[in-house]
């Protein structure tokens, strides 16, 4: 009977093989991991992956916060207080989400600065820069919408001022303010609108752009530093 069964090692590999055969995920993973990068890439080129880590961290802590948070002016502040004071390790989850956002903005600036310094936005990587710039703008929108959710005095007034600033723009300004606040002032609908933007629309858009950004990075390859001495010499090709 035993001859009918493949060896145990092969049985263990079967589920993975089954998925790989149908999806091509295995070869895609291999392509991602075992591609060559220039020999002299620098430590400065780790900032992009650090940003991905922070994005995953923000998404994870965000989901945990969403399990307790209620986007209603009557209860929002109380649920924030509950998360901070009473929920097990709630202070840590909220703290990491709060400080993670600041660190993310700092890393974005550094990552952009490195790209600029290396001239890495030049041919053929222009599109990678554009997707990155869009991610940057959306992350700023992310922090603006997240700021209101705590619904303490600072959050409330900073948002009032922020939305009023939008409102000074000609033609579209007042309309944009009205759409953001769902009316002339901050109300129940404002909070749930900001919440929907903050946890569904913006992270969805950012996630999609990150995927595109990374795909471009892998496809075009990592830039070698401009000071690289790895130059093609005659007869070396």
């Amino acid at each position: 009977m035993s001859t009918l069964l493949p060896p145990p090692g092969e049985i263990a590999r079967m589920p993975a093989d089954w998925v790989a055969e149908r999806s091509g995920l295995l070869s895609f993973g291999k392509y991602m991991l075992f591609r060559n990068v220039p020999k002299d890439i620098s430590w400065l080129q780790t900032l992009g992956s650090a940003l991905l880590t922070v994005f995953i961290l923000q998404a994870t802590t965000g989901v945990l916060l969403a399990m307790y948070y209620q986007p209603d002016p009557a209860t929002a502040w109380n649920t924030i207080a509950f998360i901070t004071n009473d929920a097990t390790l709630g202070w840590l989850v909220r703290g990491m989400h709060k400080w993670g956002s600041s660190i993310m903005v700092v890393l974005l600036f550094l990552h952009m600065g490195r790209t600029f310094l290396f001239g890495a936005y030049k041919y053929p990587r222009e599109m990678t820069w554009i997707t990155g710039a869009l991610i940057f703008i959306l992350v700023m929108a992310m922090s603006f919408t997240g700021y209101l959710l705590v619904f303490d005095e600072r959050a409330y007034w900073a948002t009032v001022v922020g939305v009023n600033i939008n409102g000074t723009a000609p033609i579209l300004g007042p309309a944009l303010s009205y759409i953001l606040m769902v009316g002339p002032e901050i109300s129940t609908h404002t909070l749930s609108r900001f919440y929907a933007l903050h946890m569904l629309v913006l992270p969805g858009a950012i996630g999609g752009l990150i995927a595109l950004h990374m795909l471009l990075v892998v496809r075009l390859g990592v830039t070698s530093p401009p000071w690289s001495r790895m130059k093609v010499t005659e007869g070396d090709v």
Partner: peptide, 23 residues
Amino acid sequence: YAFQKRHGKSFFPHAVFHDTIVS
């Protein structure tokens, strides 16, 4: 760039190692 890639190193584990430390 093709030359640099040919004489480069594998993303895993070299670059991944640095990325992990910074993360």
